[in-house]
Amino acid sequence: MDLDLQRRRRRAVLAGLTAAVLMGTAACGGSDDGGGGSADGLPKTIKLVSVNPTTGVVAFAGNAANQGYQLAIQEINDSDLLEGSQLELELVDTRSEPQTAAQEATTAIADSEVAAIFGSVSSNEAIAMSPLLQQRGLPVIYTQAGSDGVVVGDYTWRATPLMSSYYPILSRYVEEQGFSSLGVLYTSATPTLQEVGSETVPQMAEDLGIEITASIDIPATTQDYSAPISQVLESEPDAVVALLVGAANVTVMQQLRQAGYTGPVLGNSGASAGNLVPAGADGADMVWPVDFNFQQTAESSQAFVEAYRAEYGEDPLNYAAEAYDAAWFLARSIAAAGSADREAIKDAMVTQAEETFDGALGEGLSWEDGTIVVPGVVVRWTGEGEELLYEGTGEA
């Protein structure tokens, strides 16, 4: 009973604080109601759908995102943001299949009661969804899906910064470690990691004046990385970059150690979510940039962390933080529109995106071309947990 009371109390306090901050931010752009009029046009219930993988290869991200959406919607419904209207969230599983994602998007489009949706964390699924949603005029906010072809118009949004935009904050770590060369392994399983491996990392190396000794594009179907690891290590780099998806990070870390490599490994946010736990000591010293870590110091981030812990009894992952901010952005847009009409919500999203805001991902957040902009943080896996090394500043 005490835990339940504490959970409700924390949620209520955070909801009040967050609503006050976010409503105040929205009001800065003009009239007290954010330029969208009153909420008289809002129905009693506003239906939203999360179209996300809850089974399959990226289910760990889809499930975490859904928890972020659910927490935010509880707080929004407990607040006065929508003046008595309630958000209702339906969860559907894409099974990590682009065809299923497209089918679910089509189903949502056909349901006139659906005001907007939250799109898949998978780039491949998002690319299958976006043309349909843009053409038929259903607002969607994605998280994670970081490739081209996701944000294709003003109905499509992404509450995750492009990995290529914040990955270079690893430059500080590379310089501090005194690396003069990097060997790169990257998977073609996702467009995001392919871009970071083939373009972002080489550009970072060029900017730092260091050498790329080897760069190997690993086919998506690869399960044994020993051969490409041998090729990279034969080039004798000071450090290895390994850009893989989810559990594949465990395999590559174990095989790197088995091959005799003992140094740090530069990874990506796919190593988050506790994915390195099965690697044991072999996983230690993988370092990566990410848009959120539960240890970051922004007041709005820590308020989210406290509420998430109270609700779920665990630390939030970046996928949950992104979803939380996406839900609040959508709710502010609906409030500003004063309507559950899809076009009105779309127009309000465009206006809301002109304002900065504080959220789970940090303070002074903004939007650029439909995608959120976040400085990011750098973390290291110690073998037992994530250690926050430093936070980005937002400076170029």
Results as ranks from 00 to 15, higher is better:
residue 1 M to L: 09
residue 3 L to H: 10
residue 6 Q to A: 15
residue 8 R to N: 10
residue 10 R to A: 06
residue 10 R to L: 10
residue 11 R to Q: 13
residue 16 G to V: 06
residue 17 L to E: 08
residue 18 T to W: 13
residue 28 C to N: 03
residue 29 G to M: 01
residue 30 G to E: 14
residue 35 G to R: 06
residue 37 G to T: 00
residue 37 G to M: 04
residue 38 S to Q: 08
residue 39 A to W: 11
residue 40 D to Q: 12
residue 46 I to C: 03
residue 48 L to C: 14
residue 51 V to P: 10
residue 53 P to C: 10
residue 55 T to S: 15
residue 55 T to R: 15
residue 58 V to H: 15
residue 60 F to H: 09
residue 61 A to V: 13
residue 63 N to S: 15
residue 69 Y to G: 00
residue 69 Y to C: 11
residue 71 L to I: 09
residue 73 I to W: 09
residue 76 I to V: 10
residue 77 N to K: 14
residue 78 D to Q: 15
residue 79 S to Q: 06
residue 81 L to V: 12
residue 84 G to W: 05
residue 84 G to T: 05
residue 87 L to S: 11
residue 89 L to F: 12
residue 94 T to H: 13
residue 99 Q to C: 14
residue 102 A to E: 04
residue 102 A to N: 05
residue 106 T to F: 07
residue 112 S to E: 15
residue 113 E to M: 09
residue 115 A to G: 08
residue 115 A to I: 07
residue 117 I to A: 11
residue 121 V to N: 04
residue 128 A to V: 02
residue 131 P to Q: 08
residue 135 Q to A: 14
residue 138 L to T: 05
residue 140 V to D: 07
residue 140 V to H: 07
residue 141 I to E: 10
residue 147 S to Y: 13
residue 156 T to C: 07
residue 160 T to K: 06
residue 165 S to H: 15
residue 168 P to Q: 06
residue 169 I to W: 05
residue 171 S to E: 15
residue 176 E to M: 00
residue 184 V to G: 00
residue 190 T to K: 13
residue 192 T to R: 01
residue 193 L to V: 10
residue 193 L to N: 07
residue 200 T to K: 14
residue 202 P to I: 05
residue 209 G to K: 02
residue 210 I to G: 01
residue 218 I to W: 04
residue 218 I to N: 08
residue 219 P to E: 12
residue 219 P to W: 09
residue 230 S to D: 13
residue 232 V to A: 04
residue 233 L to G: 03
residue 233 L to K: 02
residue 240 V to L: 11
residue 246 G to W: 04
residue 246 G to R: 08
residue 246 G to Q: 04
residue 252 V to A: 11
residue 253 M to T: 00
residue 253 M to F: 11
residue 255 Q to F: 06
residue 255 Q to A: 05
residue 256 L to W: 07
residue 259 A to F: 10
residue 261 Y to S: 01
residue 261 Y to N: 00
residue 267 G to T: 01
residue 267 G to K: 09
residue 268 N to W: 07
residue 273 A to R: 11
residue 280 G to T: 03
residue 282 D to T: 01
residue 286 M to I: 13
residue 288 W to L: 13
residue 289 P to V: 09
residue 290 V to Q: 15
residue 291 D to T: 07
residue 295 Q to N: 11
residue 295 Q to A: 10
residue 296 Q to L: 02
residue 299 E to M: 10
residue 304 F to L: 05
residue 308 Y to E: 12
residue 310 A to R: 01
residue 312 Y to K: 11
residue 316 P to A: 11
residue 317 L to V: 06
residue 318 N to V: 13
residue 323 A to D: 12
residue 326 A to K: 09
residue 329 F to G: 11
residue 329 F to Y: 09
residue 333 S to V: 04
residue 350 V to D: 13
residue 354 E to C: 03
residue 355 E to W: 08
residue 360 A to D: 02
residue 362 G to M: 02
residue 371 T to A: 12
residue 372 I to Y: 06
residue 381 W to E: 01
residue 383 G to V: 03
residue 384 E to P: 09
residue 387 E to W: 01
